[in-house]
Nucleic acid binder design. Structure first.
Length: 773
DNA sequence: TAGGGAATATTTTTT
DNA sequence: ATATTCCCTA
């Protein structure tokens, strides 16, 4: 291992205009990249010293400002590349930053500390792993591994995993880690009620297991850094000295742990520049802390705050709509986006009968734009939740309209990829129990739960890895002959693969292992329609491995950086969630499903109250500001969610859009002109008398709110639905469930009910699945 | 141990 | 409706 603090190996600072370096400061011509900036951007670039917060609205050139700043620092020779830390949240963003900096400087730049928070955290940790109880080659677990480990921990503590699911614990621990809280300090807050307060205990056990496995989860990559910095002032001081400039992208998404990490690193020189937009903070549910951005000035004394407000993306109408919407949020720093662009079209709002109708009208609109020569690549449909996508996909398939879905499972999250990687992990790291467990019986080798239980038992009793335990148990007669033979066979193959590892390049090794293990064959024999695709993916994985130095390098990459398979070239409409759209832009944006319950999302509101409502609103703001020229917004009177019809009312967000930025278009006669019609006290009348046969059976939450005591208040084009108390049911109510029949409500917890059904027994159900009788 | 049928749970998901 | 996970039986 080379000394991470040895700066001698670093390249000398160099100016990209090498001939200019002899000129005096005054005679130096202004670098051309500065001329491309507006005044505020330029200020953000040139204020290199001291803390700077750049509040950059959507489309105001924040990436340009940030990358130019980085290039500028290098160009002035203020720091060598290795003395700059630039962090982003996504690999995509860091790749883009790197290539743009290189574009500005007209040369490649190596040895920058540029990458995601997690990648940078991992890089630091690898150098000091022992100081936090890990080995330098520790494994980085993904969510799937985490969950399985968590399950084991819960079961080991003799807790019913059904009552206290691993995913809940995982979320709780995740939030702790987000806030920089270790197992010692966990529990003093409200999240400690998992399994009657066993949360912190389980957290400690989980961390213990991680350490035993020589593994870290995503949260640990930062948390361990904090521990490291806290316990080893010398290490921290070295990094503080090293990183003379710190740059942060998308600062509004930083959680507390990341914030603390940054603050520690920048504490010595305060040369930290954070770029962000509080109005685009949409990951609060994942631990992002908008508070970070709001308190920047307090934490970094003498901070310079620069606002980027000139928008280069959207039309005034779109900006007005987005601005009008977001103005309803309290507790924001406040920005007003403006543009010199011509006015353009108003936002078109359309009320439709149902989701199918909505998909049809969006499809028509897309085809009309396409006929006028607009590229499909420049159109996007942004939905609140993935279940909204299906109707669009169906419609597009019918129309033969090419589309791509952005987001969804990442490449490395696919089962076949995870299996393959587990093979490689098991080869590279004999202690990786999780990998071993994953592949031991995939493909089927006749090694089932019983066998594994015995192995587990031995491993736990002796404090050894599963693989070691397996080796030992094979030497005894504890297993049944068949299992024993399979196990011994598998272990010897593993040995064989390990031996091959020394001889073969990793891609060849991978191919060999996948064939020799029978894994490829398993998919070849699989009749399911997606089996060929899986084989394709495996091929892709193997060929991608070529690019790495060795197997270990590849494994690091796979856990931190592995990309989504690109969704195919060609002219296609983009379909994605609002979250997935952040950072992207399109000429035309479709925003379907602006209905109460869908958007803002009811669950979100139930869980997070007004904070969540504001986040939903920011999500709307993000959606609107993705558009350059056109926005088509729609809402349906009826929506089928999980095979249940619900009638719905337009999103409150629609009422918050300024009147002169929008226009209603509606061939169906619904919601024509003013929505006041739609918000009549008896809203069902606004949808006409014809009801679908499927409807009327089921009464939605909103129906009930309207007809059974809830109120719809109307005030200057604002509609507020007031439901009775938190839920619509009370203990003792008689209810009917489609599957379980009649029953009586036992307990009410938000929208979750416990119901004693007459025939089916006591069940927990979501209140929208039952109706009162 | 494997495979089928029942039970369950469906907001968002940068790493 | 649908996907996943769980449980039980052959």
């Amino acid at each position: 291992m080379s000394d991470p603090f040895d700066l001698s190996a670093f390249e000398e600072p160099q100016n990209f205009q090498s001939d200019a370096s002899v000129m005096s400061e005054a005679a130096r011509p202004e670098p051309p990249y500065l001329a491309a900036l507006n005044e505020a951007q330029r200020e953000a670039v040139e204020a290199t010293e001291g803390p700077v917060l750049v509040l950059a609205g959507a489309g105001t050139g924040k990436t340009r400002a940030l990358t130019t700043r980085l290039a500028h620092i290098l160009n002035l020779g203020l720091a060598r590349p290795g003395e700059i830390l630039a962090v982003t949240f996504t690999n995509k963003a860091s790749r883009e930053m790197k290539s743009r900096v290189e574009g500005l400087l007209q040369r490649t730049v190596e040895s920058l500390w540029l990458g995601t928070f997690h990648a940078m955290g991992a890089r630091i940790l690898r150098s000091h792993a022992e100081l936090v109880g890990l080995k330098p080659n520790f494994t980085i677990l993904d969510t799937d591994d985490q969950l399985r480990l968590m399950k084991q921990v819960i079961e080991a503590a003799n807790i019913d995993e059904k009552k206290w699911p691993a995913r809940n614990l995982s979320a709780i621990i995740g939030r702790w880690k987000d806030r920089g809280i270790g197992p010692e300090t966990a529990g003093s807050d409200g999240t400690g009620d998992f399994a009657f307060g066993k949360g912190p205990e389980l957290y400690a056990a989980y961390q213990q297991r991680l350490k035993a496995l020589n593994a870290a989860d995503f949260g640990d990559l930062l948390l361990h850094c904090l521990t490291l910095f806290g316990n080893h002032a010398d290490v921290l001081a070295d990094y503080q000295r090293r990183f003379r400039y710190v740059l942060v992208d998308e600062y509004q998404d930083a959680n507390v742990a990341q914030y603390l990490w940054l603050r520690l690193l920048a504490r010595a020189h305060h040369n930290i520049c954070c770029v962000g937009d509080d109005d685009q903070s949409i990951y609060g549910w994942r631990g992002a802390e908008v508070g970070n951005i709001l308190r920047f000035e307090k934490d970094f004394e003498g901070a310079c705050v620069i606002r980027l407000e000139q928008n280069y993306r959207s039309t005034p109408h779109i900006l007005a709509a987005a601005g009008g919407l977001i103005a309803n949020n309290a507790g924001r720093l406040g920005k007003t986006l403006w543009t010199e662009a011509p006015e353009g079209e108003r936002i078109k709002i359309r009320g439709v009968w149902d989701g199918e109708d909505e998909a049809r009208s969006v499809g028509d609109e897309i085809e009309a734009l396409q006929a006028k020569g607009h590229s499909l690549n420049e159109m996007a449909i942004l939905v609140r939740a993935v279940f909204q996508m299906r109707e669009f996909e169906e419609r597009f398939l019918t129309l033969g309209l090419p589309y791509r879905v952005i987001g969804g499972l990442r490449f490395y999250e696919r089962r076949e990829i995870r299996d393959a990687v587990a093979y490689f992990r098991a080869i590279a790291q004999p202690e990786d129990d999780l990998a071993f467990e994953r592949i031991i019986n995939v493909p089927r080798r006749g090694i089932g739960a019983t066998t594994m239980q015995a192995v587990h038992q031995l491993a736990r009793a002796r404090g050894i890895s599963l693989m070691q335990a397996a080796v030992e148990i094979v030497g005894t007669d504890e297993l049944r002959p068949q299992a024993r033979r399979s196990m011994s066979d598998f272990l010897s193959r593993l040995d064989h693969w390990r031996a091959e590892k020394a001889r073969l390049p990793q891609a060849d090794l991978a191919e060999f292992v996948l064939d020799d293990s029978g894994y490829t064959e398993m998919w070849q024999n699989d009749k399911s329609p997606d089996a060929p695709g899986k084989l394709e993916n495996l091929k892709e994985l193997v060929s991608a491995m070529d690019e790495f130095e060795n197997l270990e390098g590849f494994l690091e990459h796979v856990s931190l950086v592995m990309e989504n398979e690109d969704s195919g070239a060609g002219d296609k409409v983009n379909l994605m969630t609002l979250h997935g759209a952040k950072g992207l832009e399109f000429d035309a944006v479709f925003l379907p499903g602006w209905e109460e319950g869908v958007f803002p999302n009811q669950r979100s509101l139930d869980e997070g109250g007004s904070t969540a409502l504001e986040e939903e609103r920011r999500l709307g703001h993000v959606g609107l500001t993705r558009a350059r020229k056109r926005v088509f917004l729609s809402f349906a009177a009826n929506r089928r969610i999980y095979n249940q019809w619900q009638s719905s009312i337009p999103s409150r967000f629609i009422d918050e859009l300024p009147q002169d930025a929008i226009e209603y278009v509606s061939e169906s006669g619904l919601y024509e002109g003013q929505q006041a019609t739609a918000l009549d006290s008896d809203h069902s009348s606004a949808f006409g008398t014809a009801e679908r046969p499927q409807m009327g059976r089921r009464r939605s939450r909103y129906d009930r709110a309207v007809t059974s005591g809830g109120l719809i208040l109307e005030g200057r084009s604002e509609a507020v639905v007031v439901r009775e108390s938190a839920g619509s049911y009370r203990v003792g109510d008689r209810v009917f469930h489609q599957k379980f029949g009649y029953g009586q409500v036992l307990t009410v917890d938000g929208d979750r009910l416990q119901v004693a059904f007459d025939k089916a027994g006591t069940k927990k159900v979501i209140d929208s699945f039952v109706e009162s009788v």
